[in-house]
Computed example of a mutant assay.
Amino acid sequence: MQLYYHPGNASMAPHLLLQEIGQPFELKYVDRDRGEHRSPEYLRLNPNGRIPVLVDGELVLYESAAICLHLADRFPEARLAPPPGTAQRARLYQWMLWLSNTLQAMLLHWFYPERMVDSGDAAAAAQVRAQAEEQIQQMLQLLDAQVAASGGDWLLGADYGIADAFTLMLCRWTRNFDRPAREFPHLGPYLQRLLARPAVGRMFEAEGLQAPLV
């Protein structure tokens, strides 16, 4: 398997899961600063020009959440997701879609507010970013409440899984906010439990990421 990644990007959650699974894989660095994600070679893998892409034999897969779900199904022995057809699996789908479609989407508005306004309108972009951060704070409160109510150490209870990898990635993206995820009463200790996992440490080391990690 090959994972096309950029440090700290949306490839982080799939990279973490590959570290957890322990099967051989190759990291393929995509230099965003040089526009490699827009190169003809990369666009043949992902016509959206976004990172990550997973190549698994004949399968070429993009969208971080889809890659995470695929890895859970591809390696059931890693126990990264509940069995298909169970209520727990349905709950996993709910949270993976919420994380990717709601929280991640709003985080992208914070990072790239200029995409939502007329070119060169700095004041409008600043307003978009401010509104996005306000919405993200409300979403982090919901996430904090879910951790508190889970009945275990992890987002969905006693078992660590793909939703935790995805949550770590998105919470890291808030590390420079006025109130980052680590300052919420339940998310803070939860993120420290995640950072204590050996696979998380290997992922951060491989990507060369520095403190603050979350």
Rank of each mutant, 00 (worst) to 15 (best):
G188P: 02
E63M: 07
M116A: 12
P185L: 08
M203C: 14
E183C: 06
A181S: 04
M106W: 04
D164A: 00
G57N: 11
L142A: 14
P189M: 06
P185N: 07
H70K: 01
A124Y: 10
L97Q: 13
A10Q: 05
L170K: 04
G120S: 08
K28G: 03
A81E: 01
E41N: 07
Q19G: 04
P84N: 09
G85F: 00
G57Q: 13
A145N: 10
R50L: 15
R91H: 10
R79H: 15
C68K: 10
H15C: 07
Q137M: 10
L27W: 02
L156I: 02
I51T: 11
W110L: 01
Q23E: 15
A65F: 03
L43D: 10
L107E: 11
Q138H: 00
I162R: 01
R115A: 12
L195P: 05
A78Q: 05
Q94N: 12
Y112V: 08
P84S: 08
P82Y: 00
P189F: 05
L195N: 08
P212S: 07
P212W: 08
D178R: 14
D31K: 09
A124W: 13
M203E: 08
L103F: 14
G151H: 10
L16Q: 11
F111N: 08
Y62A: 13
L59N: 07
R44L: 11
E41D: 15
A148V: 04
K28Q: 15
Q137K: 02
R91A: 12
